[in-house]
Amino acid sequence: MAEQTQHQTALDGDEQQVGALYAKALLGAAGGKTDEIVSQLEAVVTECLDRFPALEQAFGSPNIAQEEKEAMLDRIFGGKLDRLLLNFIKVLCRRGRAESLRAVQVTASMLRDEQLGRLHVQVTSALVLDDAQRSAIRAQLKTAFGKDAVLEESTDAALLGGIVLRIGDKVYDGSVLGKMQQLRQSVLSGVQRSMRSNFDALISS
């Protein structure tokens, strides 16, 4: 199940589309402060919405008047968030798109990574990596893809050795476990082949 949390994208197609649209607009408006805005938006989602689901519900609720929502936003975030971001969240609420805030955040950070040429790579290894290994992996990825890699590390002792890289939907399996599975397959099929071709030699009466 751990795998699944790595797909943060909303699976609701409409919401994702809306999110992408607003995220583009937000990045466009941010101008020079893009990095700050994106990290603040991430903080809003992880520190407020994740911790207080009631807040998210309140923003999306049609029972609460728009003025009240805006006042609430000012009370909570006033002074702490960039003016632009606060306005953006207010616009979202006014348009009845508050539930798309997460989708906006995911797409915004994706778009930002793209702008900066960053590559998100999930690295799974048998043991915890050291800095030399990390920089070696980064250098290798830089030559292969021409982008700076952001490593998200995890360990899985079952791999026995080597690493497994996951970039988007592609998995590059360089683990000992994967090699052993390949070896097992080829031995199995080899024995099967020779059983079919010269069965008699394999039988002793």
Binding site: K170, V171, L183, S186, V187, A201, L202, I203
Partner: peptide
């Protein structure tokens, strides 16, 4: 005949070429 089978397995291991397994998931 276990000797024969062992030799088949041995041959498979000797000729085994490990390639990086790249897959789309």
């Amino acid at each position: 005949n276990s000797d024969e089978i062992a030799s088949v397995i041995q041959k498979e291991i000797e000729t085994f070429e490990s390639k990086m397994d790249v897959r789309e998931v």
